[in-house]
């Protein structure tokens, strides 16, 4: 139950690219071939380990339909990571990436880590978007890239974990302000913040001074 950090993720992308399936595969380790349309936003969570530390991932899976776009925008600001998903068998979902990215950049905090995901890599025969194209897009926009299959679970773990690694590194580098929960990062209960240790040590100092 105890965790060192808590990261908030959102999953975005066109409707039908497999966002909910990715989440289900990650949290429940199963695949549901027939899935209802997501209404608004659904929540999922899982614990992972990075660098020997327990990290809790809270993931909000958003509806891809245009009509929900204004609702899902509310989730950008508070997220530390975003999985931007397209479907490798549908070029239009790849073409819409720019719009998604603009939306995300506009409404999120500037440090949000974005992972670009080409999903449905198991459907190689129906592929419409080359892996190289995805790589190029990611390079151009400074994203991490991966091709996954929610059906076979290929790279699903990696996609979520690598995003967390990137966030974790940014924390180590001091890029994220971890005391501001609006960034989508929270320090776990057993992990004292630098501030509190500082103040308590100061308190001890003062008490000592008073004694003398």
């Amino acid at each position: 139950m105890a965790y060192a950090y808590l990261f908030k993720y959102i999953i975005i992308g066109d409707t039908g690219v497999g966002k909910s399936c990715l989440l289900l595969q990650f949290t429940d380790k199963r695949f549901q071939p027939v899935h209802d349309l997501t209404i608004g936003v659904e929540f999922g969570a899982r614990m992972i380990t990075i660098d020997g530390k327990q990290i809790k991932l809270q993931i909000w899976d958003t509806a891809g339909q245009e009509s929900f776009r204004s609702i899902t925008r509310s989730y950008y600001r508070g997220a530390a990571g975003a999985l931007l998903v397209y479907d490798i068998t549908r070029r239009d979902t790849f073409n819409h990436l720019t719009t998604w990215l603009e939306d995300a950049r506009q409404h999120s905090n500037s440090n949000m880590v974005i992972m670009l995901i080409g999903n449905k890599s198991d459907l190689e025969s129906r592929r419409e978007v080359k892996k190289e194209e995805g790589e190029a897009f990611a390079r151009e926009h400074g994203l991490i890239f991966m091709e996954t299959s929610a059906k076979t679970a290929s790279n699903v773990e990696e996609a979520f974990i690598n995003t967390a690694k990137e966030i974790y590194e940014k924390i180590q580098e001091g890029v994220f302000d971890i005391n501001n929960e609006a960034n989508g990062i929270k320090i776990g209960p057993q992990h004292p913040t630098t501030n509190s240790t500082l103040s308590s040590s100061q308190g001890g100092h003062q008490a000592g001074g008073g004694c003398c």
Binding site: V41, F43, W60, S74, Y75, G78
Partner: peptide
């Protein structure tokens, strides 16, 4: 309004 409820929860309302 479930959509608003979820956003409010997302904004750390529980905490």
């Amino acid at each position: 309004n479930a959509a608003i409820q979820k956003i409010v929860a997302f904004e750390n309302a529980f905490e």
